[in-house]
Computed example of a mutant assay.
Amino acid sequence: MRPIVGITSYVEPASWGVWIDQDAALIRKSYVDAVTAAGARAVILPPDDTDADVLRALDALIIAGGADLGPDLYGEEPGPLTDSRPDRDRGESLLLQAALRTDLPVLGICRGMQLLAVTCGGRLHQHLPDVVGSDKHRPGPGVYGWHGITLEPGSLAAEVAGDGPEGDGRIEVNTYHHQGVADPGSLTVTAWADDGVVEAVEDPTKPFVLGVQWHPEEAGERRIFESLVDAART
């Protein structure tokens, strides 16, 4: 049987057929396609903070991208540009804490990487342009930024993302975020943007716990998902 990979979902207004602006639990199909291409079965997980029992049916977990994390998760008040989804925060925090306790393979993407850091005792920059002085990580609405990052040699991030065309651990990635990791907590930072923004975190004491700030599902980076699925099979 194919491993079963759960993907947390957005809750946003959506339209289909005759139904206009209905609240919907959804996810970009690129996540599903990436998991399917890696040899696993994707299951979409809407927000649910009752329990984490669904993890018993999963072989791996992806915390997907989306809206900002609520700063209450790391003891701060929301800034003027912070746009959070408390239902996702509650449900995903519950799932992630349980997954980490049971060594379930976990991949956090964008928001998911930030939740990993916060869950492990870290905190975020609520608005990166105030820190780095540019909008290059989110150039405009619906526009991905592309920029270079440097990967730590020998890290899980380097293993799954590659050494780059020059073999020096430098690659180009696509990003869309205005928040970023200020403190990784107990996690290890294993990739940085040229402006110092944290681009990957991981827990080397776990079989597979990795967060990436970029969007491999949109860029066709299959190795990250193949590595997650390989971990799910063990």
Rank of each mutant, 00 (worst) to 15 (best):
E199A: 02
L55M: 06
T50F: 03
L187A: 01
T50E: 13
A38S: 11
A99K: 07
P153N: 10
V212L: 14
P86Q: 06
L81S: 07
P204S: 06
R138I: 02
I171F: 05
V106K: 01
L45T: 11
G162L: 10
D168T: 03
L128H: 04
Y74I: 02
S84G: 02
L69D: 07
V229S: 04
R90G: 09
R222N: 12
R111Y: 04
R138H: 14
S227K: 08
D83T: 08
A25P: 11
V197S: 12
R88W: 05
T175D: 02
T190M: 08
A64L: 08
P86G: 09
R28E: 08
I20K: 13
I109K: 12
P139K: 05
S84I: 01
D89M: 06
Q114K: 10
G220M: 06
S9E: 05
A193Y: 00
M1P: 15
L104V: 08
Y31E: 06
G121E: 10
T150Q: 13
D130M: 12
H177L: 06
A193K: 03
G169E: 08
D59K: 07
I44V: 15
P105Q: 09
A25S: 15
G112P: 07
A99E: 08
G196Y: 08
P46H: 09
L100T: 04
P204W: 02
G180H: 09
L73R: 15
Y10M: 11
P207N: 01
Y144G: 01
E172N: 15
N174G: 15
H147L: 09
P46V: 07
G180R: 04
